[in-house]
């Protein structure tokens, strides 16, 4: 019983991290209709930037959590203005291929500059050690990741549902023609939303730095899992991405405990099952099934 609880807690901790990382992917798809393959590369850049900031300027994790998303937002804006915007009117596959190419370029550039073995990173002292919750042991850092990720997810959800900006963004996503007819400049929100999605990927990268290998390739495998999360949750659905993130974290944890060889495959089995039963994903809009 205790073991089950332990795995569940670990699954939720991993899941919160998946939820946060997938959030950026879901928002960009929801608003721009762009399948951002470069999400994994942006995640990697976030982690690498945090490692470089620690090494050169001695900026700790706390500072990186503030600074890196801002830098990544700016980078996202540049990418959107320079490249993405020109392909928006075309089939979604064009931007998919663009971001795919961008991934290869970014990964190779980081390899050239920092090699392939990875960069060191030390978490702050305050986040080392463990917490014992009635027999369930969780690294203090993982508890922090969980709380931080949940807080960001809730914040994004509040902004999207409770504020005027959120309403405009949602209207632009769901009924762009109607939103335009009501005098909303839909195009104006495209750039900041893309930047925001990239910033979230970078933020996830910073969070990953203390407990994952910081290498040019770190985003490759991770991005694949995130795409599964987004497909399970429903393309473009923010709530869906969060719920699916937790679901995938749990499936992975129990997979690792009881069917180790299949721990990753199970995630994709789950995806296949969801698509079979609900082609639009758990929280996808119905029109996607048409």
């Amino acid at each position: 019983m205790n073991a089950l609880l332990q795995y569940a807690v670990q699954g939720l901790a991993a899941g919160s991290f998946y939820a946060l990382a997938a959030l950026g992917l879901a928002i960009i798809f929801g608003v721009l209709g762009v399948v951002n393959f470069a999400h994994g590369a942006f995640y990697m850049l976030g982690a690498v930037t945090a490692a470089v900031l620690l090494d050169t300027l001695n900026l700790t994790l706390w500072w990186s959590l503030l600074v890196v998303p801002v830098l990544m937002f700016a980078f996202g804006v540049v990418v959107e203005r320079l490249f993405v915007q020109w392909l928006l009117r075309l089939d979604a596959l064009y931007n998919f291929l663009l971001t795919f190419g961008l991934t290869l370029v970014l990964v190779e550039l980081v390899k050239q500059k920092y090699g392939v073995s990875g960069l060191p990173y030390k978490p702050p002292k305050a986040l080392q050690g463990r917490v014992d919750l009635a027999g369930v042991v969780l690294p203090r850092y993982q508890l922090f990741v969980f709380l931080f990720s949940v807080a960001i997810c809730v914040l994004v959800w509040l902004v999207m549902t409770q504020t005027r900006v959120g309403m405009i963004v949602r209207a632009s996503t769901e009924k762009p023609e109607l939103a335009r007819a009501l005098g909303i400049n839909v195009g104006r929100w495209v750039t900041p939303v893309f930047g925001f999605g990239v910033a979230i990927a970078g933020l996830a990268g910073v969070l990953a730095a203390p407990f994952r290998a910081i290498t040019a390739d770190m985003g490759n495998n991770f991005a694949i899992i995130l795409f599964a999360v987004v497909v399970i949750g429903g393309l473009g659905s923010i709530v869906g991405a969060v719920v699916a993130g937790f679901l995938v974290g749990l499936v992975e944890a129990f997979g690792q405990a009881y069917a180790p060889t299949f721990a990753q495959i199970l995630i994709f089995v789950l995806m296949a099952l969801v698509i079979l039963v609900r082609p639009a994903g758990l929280f996808g809009r119905k029109e996607a099934t048409a």
Binding site: F29, G33, V35, F37, D91, A92, L93, F96, L104, T173, P176, D217, N220, N221, A223, I224, F227, A228, V230, V231, L235, G236, F268, M271, R285, E287, A288, A290
Partner: peptide, 23 residues
Amino acid sequence: MNSKQIRAGAAAMTGVLLLGACG
């Protein structure tokens, strides 16, 4: 965004998953 875009997106996502990491 219309359903065609979503379908294309879904197709692309599936492509991603099939492609995996690439060299």
